[in-house]
């Protein structure tokens, strides 16, 4: 391990690497149209990164690529350039860059963008995915967890709870496929998911629980819409989960040592 190995950009590269199998298979099945969409999102996201570098001396990050991939894959279809750029501008600026860039944000910019697009333009249909794309979630999660870039506890917590919900019958197969894609793209983000081990387990479980709840009780919602809503709510709950986990940790040390 050499100096500065796990700097911010290395983690961003690892996240890109883990998403790569999924993105490539998505491009393979989607063709030129999806490639154009990805180029558009990439252009829009990196433009805002460069604007913030020039105006606020904020170092740009390769995390722009993962954000762009997540938005391109999950955004509603046939939005058109204007709506897409509007949504990205809101999500990336208000969700990430105004806080000081990747690493200081509290919600994932892709989640904010997708929620904005979903609520703002409800008449557009959400995408559906081919089965191989969903299977590519497995290598993504494995690469992410093996390199330590994705919080393993979040992924495992979601998997375990999701499996329970599936056996109980709360989750159908299409919802599980999409929930997996959303899990590796936005939920298992090391920055905006919970930061303590206990908090991460609960965070993953909460995401799966909310997905199940919406799948059962939200009539007429598309699978992507369900998963994105669950991702947004669980990432908003992450600081609370962390606070709880820290209080438990500190309390246990107080009992053992008399001070923390």
């Amino acid at each position: 391990m050499s100096r500065g190995l796990w700097s911010r950009e290395t983690v961003a590269l690892m996240l890109i690497a883990s998403c790569l199998p999924m993105t490539l298979s998505w491009l393979w099945f989607g063709g030129l149209l999806e490639l154009a969409e990805l180029s558009l999102t990439l252009l829009a996201v990196s433009m805002w990164h460069i604007v913030f570098m020039l105006l606020r001396a904020q170092p740009p990050s390769l995390s722009a690529v993962t954000t762009a991939i997540a938005i391109a894959m999950l955004a509603p279809e046939e939005l058109g350039v204007f709506r897409m750029v509007l949504g990205i501008s809101f999500g990336v600026v208000m969700g990430e860059l105004v806080f000081g860039g990747w690493g200081r944000n509290v919600v994932n910019p892709a989640t904010v963008t997708l929620s904005f697009l979903g609520f703002g333009f409800p008449s557009f249909v959400w995408p559906i995915f081919d089965e191989p794309v969903a299977w590519a979630v497995l290598p993504a999660a494995l690469i992410g967890m093996a390199t330590g870039a994705m919080p393993a506890a979040v992924v495992l917590g979601a998997t375990i709870f999701g499996a329970i919900a599936f056996m109980w019958g709360g989750l159908s197969e299409p919802v599980i496929m999409v929930a997996g894609i959303v899990l590796v793209l936005v939920v298992a983000d090391p920055v905006t998911s919970a930061a303590t081990t206990l908090g991460r387990w609960i965070n993953g479980g909460l995401y799966a629980a909310l997905t199940t709840l919406f799948a059962v009780g939200w009539a007429g919602a598309a699978p992507v819409q369900i998963a994105v809503a669950a991702a947004l709510l669980s990432s908003l709950a992450a600081p609370l989960l962390d606070e709880t986990a820290l209080a438990i940790w500190v309390g246990r040390r107080r009992r053992r040592h008399g001070r923390s």
């Binding site: 606020r56 870039a149 930061a195 820290l246």
Partner: peptide, 29 residues
């Protein structure tokens, strides 16, 4: 110009970070 901006870059919570503290304390907080 691209990499050495004025503000410092934040640490990203990874497994490497918690191992750098010997997994003895919640490293990210």
């Amino acid at each position: 110009a691209l990499t050495r901006s004025a503000s410092v870059r934040p640490a990203i919570p990874t497994a490497a970070l918690s191992q750098a503290f010997g997994a003895a304390l919640p490293a990210t907080p």
